[in-house]
């Protein structure tokens, strides 16, 4: 009896540990990449944690400074750049090593090596250099966050409204053509969007929905209504019909029953659907690019700033900025999926 329990518990903890490792390790490396300097991205093998500083060796030779960085893997200094132009060093330190200094500081520090011996300096790396770069080339990040929230909000409202109505009808009623109609709902998810994206958006532009958040939400909701319909339908089906019938017996109207009994029990399902709706709206940049370029969402702003850059560390920083609010949303609603918000279980 004890050993069986032990096996069960061990499997339990093993499963949890695997989950945590499999999810958190990639996330950790992704966040690390977002604070890497350009040098670190390609350094190999690199340490587990991102650098906070660089150890440099400066040598004065042939009328130039030789700048080398300490490479721990090979335990030696690696020559990176030779110059006597302070401006060049300033830009190099900034762009490759995320070290921010001005020309005088560099001149003062480096000139000590003119005495003949190489000097050793340690400079602090600006961990948030990538984030600062991002904000310096965008100027409407604030408004775009509001836009994203609005687009996501509308998407949730539209999907949930249209979808749950359809879902309830499928779950609770028998009618001719029910299975065919419920399959038809899913067709919008079966037709690949790649080839029809532009024509569909052009119709919306002609309806004067360009540069509006509700226009975006309309596009995002197309697939989400079907999804919501099916998910809510399965949830409604799972709610014991006798509970509703008991409620009628006690004199409640159909609407009251729906509000007080059915809806609260279906709530976790609604939350799951709103998660899909939110993310569909929050993470899209291509539809936003074509439909609402002059009124961008956060995702679009990030895409335009660093989407086409080949600097991975910059793209990672942008992605982190985009993910954070989505994580906040997820954190808030997680309790509602797992019904940890109150005793409505019977």
């Amino acid at each position: 009896m004890i050993s069986k329990n032990l096996i069960v518990r061990t499997t339990f903890y093993l499963f949890i540990a695997t989950m945590l490792i499999a999810i958190l390790i990639p996330v950790f490396f992704f966040v690390s990449t977002s604070v890497y300097s350009e040098y670190e991205v390609y350094d190999f093998p690199r340490k587990f944690l991102p650098r906070t500083s660089f150890d440099l060796e400066i040598e004065w030779e042939n009328d130039q400074y030789n700048l080398s960085v300490f490479d721990e893997a090979n335990n030696e200094y690696e020559l990176l750049i030779q110059s006597n132009d302070m401006d060049r060093f300033r830009l190099y330190l900034k762009r490759s090593l995320s070290i921010q200094l001005n020309n005088e500081e560099i001149e003062n520090d480096f000139s000590l090596s003119k005495k003949g011996e190489p000097i050793y300096l340690t400079y602090k790396k600006d961990l948030f250099y990538n984030y600062k770069t991002f904000f310096s080339i965008t100027n409407n990040a604030g408004k775009s966050v509001v836009n994203s929230v609005m687009a996501a909000g509308w998407t949730i409202i539209i999907s949930l409204f249209f979808g749950s109505l359809a879902g309830y009808s499928i779950a609770r009623y028998k009618f001719a053509g029910k299975s065919q109609l419920s399959l038809t709902l899913l067709v919008v998810r079966m037709f690949p969007g790649v080839a029809i994206a532009i024509p569909m958006l052009v119709y919306l532009i002609k309806m004067n929905l360009d540069n509006t958040m509700i226009g975006l939400a309309i596009v995002y909701s197309v697939g989400n209504i079907a999804l919501t319909a099916w998910i809510t339908s399965s949830i409604f089906t799972g709610i014991n019909i006798e509970l509703e019938e008991a409620s009628y017996i006690f004199g409640a109207s159909k609407l009251q029953t729906f509000r007080k009994i059915t809806l609260p029990l279906a709530f976790p399902g609604f939350i799951a659907c709103s998660m899909y709706a939110f993310l569909a709206a929050w993470n899209d940049s291509i539809t936003a690019l074509i439909l609402s370029n002059n009124n961008p969402t956060l995702s679009l702003v990030i895409y335009k700033a660093i989407g086409s850059s080949s600097a991975i560390q910059l793209s990672a920083a942008g992605a982190v900025i985009l993910i954070l609010p989505a994580l906040v949303f997820t954190f808030i609603i997680k309790n509602y999926i797992n019904q940890l918000w109150g005793e409505v279980k019977l």
């Binding site: 999810i23 993310l279 990672a316 949303f329």
Partner: peptide, 14 residues
């Protein structure tokens, strides 16, 4: 649960 949901929130480009 929150940790388990994180991968879902990561945008496709990321």
């Amino acid at each position: 649960l929150f940790v388990a949901l994180i991968p879902m929130a990561v945008p496709p480009a990321a």
